[in-house]
Design a binder for these strands. Structure first.
Lengths: 135, 135
DNA sequence: CGGTATCCCCGGCGATACTG
DNA sequence: CAGTATCGCCGGGGATACCG
């Protein structure tokens, strides 16, 4: 066995780096908000509490599974609150918490940059895609 | 067959909604910056131009394929510029464009929120995970 | 040095059917 | 009404090997 191979050392470094990445707050946040449905749910909830079914209708393309999964994730992170009213047919409302609302400005910043610059990005893409040869 | 089934109408609505989502600037931006390596590359490049190999070493856990793929995507979007110096062994530098630099404040906003609030999020997670029964 | 091309595998997304 | 459980598929991610 003798010396550890370069591959082994690299492997080791990689594992550590992955662990480091997983612990990075920015990455954690990006992982959360980059989820396909999170942004939609957040902005839907920005206007006030909504029931499960209402969210499903507003968001339209979401399956019950993904909606629940998204909601659970957000609840777990303390960004939304799940409030159950035990009436005859149960009624469940979801609402942004204080923490969840504090995230809205960030979402707005993202939206703002996107609206101001995405046309440039799209132009760059078009140009890039249209360049088959010659500088 | 007569009437279109509810499933068909739902399908239709979903396709349209997906198209709408795909066109949403915020979603496009999120799709880009939420990429595992994009944030790393951007912040690495924030300090000035770097060579391909340097990026690979700084970022550590990245495979050549992913590094190239990330770089190409960013170049295509006009966020980084690829500069080739045709010396004997080729030399390639990557550098943020003006557009790319304009994105840095947004990244900082994300980082800032994360650093200020992720401990609350993690606390919420711990509490959530520790709640097996009773309110 | 700076990539490209290929293969494989895993995880996540969505659809469906069913329950309290 | 508000979910949960299960299945299948598809695509992206990483490792590896190889070119200019």
């Amino acid at each position: 066995m003798a010396t550890r191979t370069a591959a082994q050392m690299r492997e080791q470094a990689k594992v550590e780096y992955d662990a480091y990445l997983a612990a990075c707050p920015s990455r954690q946040l990006l992982d959360r908000i980059s989820d396909k449905w999170v942004g939609l749910v957040l902005s839907a909830l920005a206007g006030g509490p909504l029931r499960y079914g209402e969210l499903g209708r507003i968001i339209a393309g979401v399956s019950p599974k993904m909606l629940t999964q998204t909601l659970r994730g957000l609840e777990r992170d303390g960004l939304v609150e799940r409030r159950v009213t035990p009436t005859v047919p149960v009624r469940v409302d979801y609402e942004l918490t204080e923490l969840g609302r504090s995230l809205l400005p960030v979402m707005r910043a993202i939206k703002s940059w996107a609206e101001q610059h995405m046309d440039l990005v799209n132009a760059a893409r078009a140009e890039y895609d249209a360049a088959p040869a010659t500088a």
